[in-house]
Design a protein around this nucleic acid. Structure first.
Lengths: 211, 211
DNA sequence: CTAATAGTGTCTCTGAGACACTATCTA
DNA sequence: TAGATAGTGTCTCAGAGACACTATTAG
């Protein structure tokens, strides 16, 4: 093996999406040290010797939320040739989706000041994290067109109206009820259950689930 | 920095696409050493200390073809936790597009037995390279929907029929001439020139170019 | 003129968008 | 019954597909 091969440290940055109160949120951590002291940044960590990248991403998610999720996906790489004496660092970006019934434990595994911030309220982040968030959001919008990924935002049982609202949030546009119903019954593999929503002061909607 | 952080070597694997004689080809190299001795594999190389990943990808392309191209794009990562004493290796996948007028120099920079193989003729490749090629092809098809990437396959001046045939090759389906004309004039930024194709025994078609 | 492909007119069909209607539940 | 949302019927419009037509070149 040639002598001048890069020996890089690898870090995983994770953009964690969650829809709370019908608003798209992202998990951010407040930095306690320079640089960018006090600024929000994406949660990240180093890949350890015997870890797959995906494992590290899962661990970063767990460390900040106390939960695991079933959808975590790589969407890009950032490589800057550092002159840092500690060596070169390569960042690999992941995004993860949490469904809105996930209960985030109150006591985090770490002491990081992590919180979900509405994506529309995000200010200036540390490093180039604003552009990473933007790229993750664009990737999410693209990926959702090719699959059933939207289901990872939803609880196991949901109403058509809820699915419609979640789609509207991700796509940042509105859909007409009738046309939306026609679209999903043609393009999604969802199934009507015999159950109905409860505690509503009107005709209750049927609950559906992904099959 | 913690002690148990992965110090990985990074390699770049490149899937080089080219349309030759109206067939989609991929550049493959015949392996001269075990493992998979004699099998075809994708061209690859290590990232050097002071190189950006993209630079390495460009160099891999140059080394095998003697040319540079203006479209080269990352589309995935492969990480296996090697127990190899030389250390961990992470592979980053790129795909590149060459246009069909590119003259590939006869004497390669390296002595690798590199050749363009029609994608439909590819047999069993070394390692998991069959699945990488498949992923690259899928990514190419997706990316082309969002942009003018098809132009990188084409010479600077081309006819509508040529553009149509190239689209048919990438999408692996046929288009109807009239509808295709309507589609591209609405969705592509191409411009008719005053030039016409030459040496044809029939009405010559106008030449177009991307703007 | 003929042969061949370039390039266009227009009908159909499918699916998104718009909007009004009926259905079914609680209070 | 009133109020509210669930769920459906159907018209319109834009774009893809199909197909036949006219245009223009070489020989």
């Amino acid at each position: 093996m040639p002598k001048d091969i890069a020996q890089a440290n690898i870090t995983i940055d994770v953009v964690i999406f969650n829809i709370i109160n019908y608003q798209l949120h992202i998990l951010l951590v407040q930095r306690a040290t320079p640089p960018y002291h006090g600024f929000h940044s994406l949660p990240w960590w180093f890949v350890k010797r015997d870890e797959q990248l995906q494992q590290t991403a899962t661990k970063v998610l767990y460390r900040e939320t106390g939960v695991f999720c079933d959808y975590i996906q790589s969407f890009g790489i950032f490589d800057e040739v550092y002159r840092d004496p500690r060596g070169r660092i390569i960042s690999i970006w992941y995004y993860a989706i949490l469904d809105d019934t996930t209960i985030i434990p109150q006591s985090w595994v770490t002491q990081d000041r992590a919180s979900f911030i509405p994506i529309k309220m995000i200010g200036t982040l540390a490093f180039d994290h604003n552009s990473i968030v933007q790229k993750a959001y664009e990737q999410l919008q693209k990926d959702i067109q090719w699959s059933d990924i939207i289901k990872h935002f939803l609880p196991p049982y949901f109403t058509i109206d809820q699915l419609k609202k979640y789609c509207e949030i991700i796509y940042n546009r509105s859909f007409e009820k009738r046309n939306f119903t026609k679209f999903i019954s043609k393009n999604f593999t969802i199934k009507k259950t015999t159950q109905k929503e409860q505690y509503v002061a009107h005709r209750p909607a049927s609950l559906y689930r992904f099959v």
